[in-house]
Simulated assay, not measured.
Amino acid sequence: MSAIEFRDVYFRYNEDAPWVLKKFNLKIEENETVAIIGHNGSGKSTIAKLANGLLVPQAGDILINGRKLTASNVWEIRQNIGMVFQNPENQFVGTTVRDDVAFGLENRGIPRKEMIKRIHTSLTQVGMENYQDHEPHNLSGGQKQRVAIASVMATYPEILLLDEATSMLDPRGRKEILSTIHDLQEELEITMVMITHDLHEIILTDRVIVMNQGQIYKDTTVDHLFNDYQGLQSIGLSLPLTVELAIELERHYDYQFTTYPLDNEEFLKALWTSNLKE
Rank of each mutant, 00 (worst) to 15 (best):
I110V: 15
I110L: 09
I110S: 05
R112E: 15
K113D: 13
K113P: 03
T121V: 14
S122H: 07
T124A: 15
T124P: 05
T124M: 13
V126F: 07
V126Q: 01
M128D: 10
M128N: 13
M128K: 12
N130P: 06
N130K: 13
Y131M: 14
Q132F: 02
D133T: 12
D133V: 07
D133R: 12
H137V: 09
H137M: 08
L139Y: 00
G142R: 01
G142L: 02
V147T: 05
A148M: 01
A150S: 11
A150R: 07
M153E: 08
M153P: 01
A154N: 11
Y156G: 09
P157Y: 10
P157D: 10
I159E: 02
L160C: 03
L161D: 10
L161K: 09
L161T: 11
A165E: 03
A165V: 07
T166H: 08
M168D: 01
M168Q: 10
L169I: 05
D170M: 12
P171L: 11
G173E: 02
G173C: 02
R174S: 12
K175D: 15
K175S: 15
K175Q: 14
E176G: 08
E176P: 07
E176C: 06
L178V: 00
T180Q: 10
I181G: 06
H182T: 12
D183E: 13
L184W: 05
E186V: 12
E187R: 11
E187G: 02
E189G: 15
E189V: 12
E189T: 13
E189C: 15
I190N: 14
M194V: 10
T196D: 01
T196K: 04
T196A: 00
D198S: 14
D198G: 09
L199E: 04
H200G: 07
E201S: 09
E201P: 03
I202G: 09
L204D: 06
L204V: 06
L204G: 02
R207S: 05
V208H: 00
I209Y: 01
V210T: 05
V210I: 08
M211N: 09
Q213T: 06
G214C: 05
G214F: 01
Q215P: 00
I216C: 04
I216D: 00
D219H: 00
T221Y: 05
V222N: 11
D223A: 14
D223L: 12
H224R: 15
L225E: 08
L225C: 10
F226V: 14
Q230F: 12
G231E: 03
L232N: 12
Q233K: 15
Q233W: 00
S234D: 08
S234L: 07
I235C: 08
S238A: 14
L241D: 10
L241P: 02
T242L: 08
V243F: 03
L245E: 15
L245R: 14
I247G: 14
E248D: 14
L249G: 01
L249T: 03
E250A: 05
R251C: 13
H252R: 13
Q256I: 02
